[in-house]
Structure formats: C-alpha cells, structure tokens
Design a protein around this nucleic acid. Sequence first.
RNA 1: UAAUUCGGGAAUAG
Length: 386
Amino acid sequence: VSTLTLLIKCLCRLKKVDLGFSVLGITYKYGLHPSTHMLTALLHGLCMEGSMVAAMELFQEIVEKELPFNEFTYNTIINGFCKEGQIDKALNLFQDMIKCGVTPDIVTYNTLIHGLWKFGNREEAKRLLIDMPDCGIAPDVRTYNVVIDALCKEEKTQEAISLFELMMTEKGIEPNVFTFTSLISALCKERKTTEALDLMEMMTNRGLRPDVVTYSSLIYGLCRSGQWSEVNNLLDKMKEQGVALDIVTFSTLMDALCKVRRMKEALAVFDLMTQRGIRPDIVTYSSLLRGLCHSGYLKETSKVFDKMVSQNIHPNIVTLTGLLDAYSERGMIDMARKIFDEMLQHGEKPSTITYNAMIKGYCLQGKIDKAKEIFEQMEARGVLPD
RNA sequence: UAAUUCGGGAAUAG
C-alpha cells in the first residue's frame, strides 16, 4: 500500500490525478485497503488542481464508507477550500472535524489563519490566533510567517519587522528562510535594497541559506533600483552556492532588462533559460512580448507570439493588455483596437486595466470621442471604472 | 512516513 501511495503522489505531482484514481482501483483489485496516507495523497492531488467538487465527493465517500481519515485528511481539504477562497466551507469542515473527534492541530490553525487573512476576514483570523493557545496549541514559526507576510503585503513592513523581532526575542522562535524571504521581498518592493541585503546577511549569520526564492526577490528589487552590479554579485553568489536559477529568476531578470529597453540582453536571457531546459511560461512570454513591442521590435513580437501559441501557451488578459498598451504607446492605435476587439470576440473579458489602457490610447491620439465610446462600453458591460 | 499549513516574476494609472 505504501508503494502504491508513493505512485499516487508521483502521478499527482505530474498532474495526472485521474491516473491516481486508477491506482486506487488497483489497490482494491489486489484486495488491499487504502490507507489514510493514500487517500490523503489523492485528496491533495484534487485540491492542488482546484477540483474542489471532486475533492469534496472523495472526502464524503471516505466518511460514508468508513474509510480511514485523520487530521491530515481534514487539513488537506480545509487547505483546498482556503486556497479557493471558500472560507465558509473551510470553517464548516473545521467544525465538522471537532464533532468527529479529530483534534485540530497547528497545521489546521495555520491553514485557516492564512485563508481568513488572505480573503479579508482579518477579525476572524485574529480570533483564531487568540483562541489557539486555549486549545493547547502554541503558534509556531509558520504561524508567525503567515502574519508577517500578511503585514508585508499590506505594506506594513515596519509592523512586520516588529513582529519578527518579538517572535525571536520574546517568544524564542527561530525565523526560517520563509520569514526572511517575506521581509526581504517587502523591503525590495519599497526599494529598500540596503536593508534587504542586510537581512540576507543576517540570515546567513544565523546559519540559514538563502534559496532561489530569496535570491529572486532580491534580484527583483535590485533590478528595479537599477543596481545592476549588485545583481551580478548575487548571480555569482548563487553559482558559488550551487543555487540554480529557475523560471521566476530568469523571468524577473528578463523583465527588468525589457523595462530598461536592453532588448538584446533580454533576448539573451530568454535564450539562456530555454537552453537550460526551462520552458518559458505565460508570464515570461507576456513580459517579453510587451517589451519587444514597446521597444519597436515588431517583427520579433509576432514571431515570439506565434512561437508561444505553437507551444500551446495561450495569451491571457495580461498578455493582451500588455501588447495593447505597447502598440498604443507606439501610436499604433488601430493595432491596439484590433487586440481589444479580438479579446471581446474570443470571450476574453477585458478588465478595468484593459479599458483604461484603451482609453489612454485614444486620449493620447486626441480622439476623445473614441475614448468616451470605450468608457461607455465599459459601463454598459458592467466593468467598473477606477 | 517523499501524506496536510508559510515566501519570489508579467498589463493601465500612481
């Protein structure tokens, strides 16, 4: 059974959850009983691909057929609903688990606090934070990370740093790589790159090794501040430490080069990543296409666009809005409009940002009547102006 | 126990 569980986990990671279910069938065929572990792995697979309806069906089947379940089972499905923003369902399951005599653990609390905070129910999140010690559960480093990161995302970096200090000095909890990376990323977004680099030094002094995420966050910030020599230092350090660049690192570098119009280098980064066997994704392509078009590499733009489609990566609203704006900035308002109309035809609903870009385009051309027309369409289609 | 919870990249304006 543990071998088959391992197989299911591998299949789920390859996004072949349906094959995972075949393995479950095989388990029965051999007269074996699926373990909690195995069922949780399947449930996790469904949750990760966002199939919460199927996940809930599986969960109910487990309960009804009296298959084994435990806190891992509950935590997995609660996390699935939290990720989808269906916090009410997550909270119902939380009540359920208590009723079934499964005791919520630190993972349950961390999951719910994260979900509640992320989807705007901060009061409820704080209530859980206050309640957890009464249930005999002490917040751990991950609990702090959830709150620290939430504060960072609300641009309350100083509060996040205060909490970080309190966690270490008063609670005696050691920060981990995630804690530092959240803070470093927030500081980078505020262009406080010196403080961010100081934190990296602090983490290494505490015996923590920055990983690819930490480095990528710093590279992002340093690029935005134009500290290119520092970027090179970090790239050297990554090499020295044996930390491989990944798709995000490459895309971050490439995007930064695009933004300062160093297109030759941007293309070189793009080539390098493909040479290293990293497949560009929709983010990489959106960034490159906008950059190429903006800098006037119009032939390259169409070439790359076709290449993207041929790799079965389809432009989304961000890709198209980026291109729309880039064409309009080059004065090619008709091309911009063409993209806009095609979005509507293909059922891709333009967002507020798309409308803003289109309106801006017409305004720059002095075509105020056209801009007004778009504005009216926007209201008619129920897209809110900001 | 390779089972469940935390961190990084793309669009307008700012």
